[in-house]
């Protein structure tokens, strides 16, 4: 990692590079530039994750004419791909290096693709195609599901952490803050808050799970979003972050529409 990044920056292929640096044994995202190349470290596999795509998006918005490099995991690569599709990042302004996730992390995330396409570091491990948690939830009756969700959502403190950490939440103005649309004066917010966020994530959520990881109230948001992703896969045959055109960025064709009759 050290030599590749150093070469990229030295040769001027990128202006700066988002990678990681250790502080007292803690892994931390860091923007490497010409000046601090001596801080670069050899690559090592860790299970700690950061919203590094969000950091990239912020710096790219600040300096749109600069080229950035970034070290990504599988989910983060999907996030960047999705941002390309939604015109938030320019393809020619991002250089991607990929790292694989460990087996334990893939199992913990129940990740469907724990490695990026552009894999430079580490070994790709086997994907986990089924989510146990989601299966459990889907087998519950309507009433108990309703109670289950409301009991969990009851802990929400409306910190917007899930939105702020999400790599594909790129809107400048957020409808979740709109007090006419979402009840703005009660705490905890009612179920519509998280339901709406889940709906907005349709076709965008890349299943990185940062929202659940950051949630101070431990709301099982990931199951909600895994469900969203499953629906998108079923109805539109689309996996966010893959190479295909997103059915959500265009109106599409009659042939791509779901059927009018509801599945029961």
């Amino acid at each position: 990692m050290k030599t590749t990044i150093e070469r990229l920056i030295r040769e001027g292929l990128v202006d700066a590079f988002w990678a990681y640096r250790s502080f007292r044994d803690c892994h931390f995202p860091w923007l490497f530039t010409q000046e601090d190349l001596h801080h670069l470290e050899p690559w090592r596999q860790t299970d700690v994750r950061f919203p590094i795509v969000k950091l990239l998006l912020a710096s790219a918005r600040e300096n749109p004419e600069k080229t950035y490099g970034i070290l990504v995991r599988g989910c983060e690569e999907r996030g960047i791909e999705e941002l390309f599709k939604w015109n938030q990042l320019k393809r020619e302004r991002v250089v991607i290096l990929g790292q694989a996730c460990s087996k334990s992390l893939a199992a913990k995330c129940e990740c469907r693709k724990p490695f990026p396409d552009r894999l430079q570091y580490g070994e790709a491990v086997a994907p986990v195609m089924e989510s146990k948690k989601l299966r459990e939830l889907e087998q519950m009756t309507m009433e108990s599901l309703h109670e289950w969700w409301l009991a969990h959502l009851n802990r929400c403190i409306r910190c917007f952490g899930c939105r702020d950490v999400c790599p594909v939440c790129f809107c400048i103005e957020c409808s979740l803050e709109h007090t006419d649309l979402i009840p703005g004066t009660i705490l905890p917010p009612d179920a519509s808050f998280h339901l709406l966020r889940a709906i907005h994530m349709g076709g965008r959520c890349i299943d990185c799970g940062l929202c659940e990881e950051i949630c101070p109230a431990h709301i099982p948001l990931r199951s909600l979003h895994k469900k969203v992703n499953g629906l998108v896969r079923e109805t539109f045959g689309y996996t966010p972050g893959d190479g295909n055109k997103s059915p959500f960025t265009l109106l599409g064709d009659v042939s791509e529409l779901p059927s009018l009759s509801r599945r029961t």
Binding site: E138, M142, S144, L145, W148, W149, A191, L195, I199, K227
Partner: peptide, 8 residues
């Protein structure tokens, strides 16, 4: 589908 999943 989302309503169904949330128990409505």
């Amino acid at each position: 589908e989302m309503l169904r999943f949330a128990g409505f």
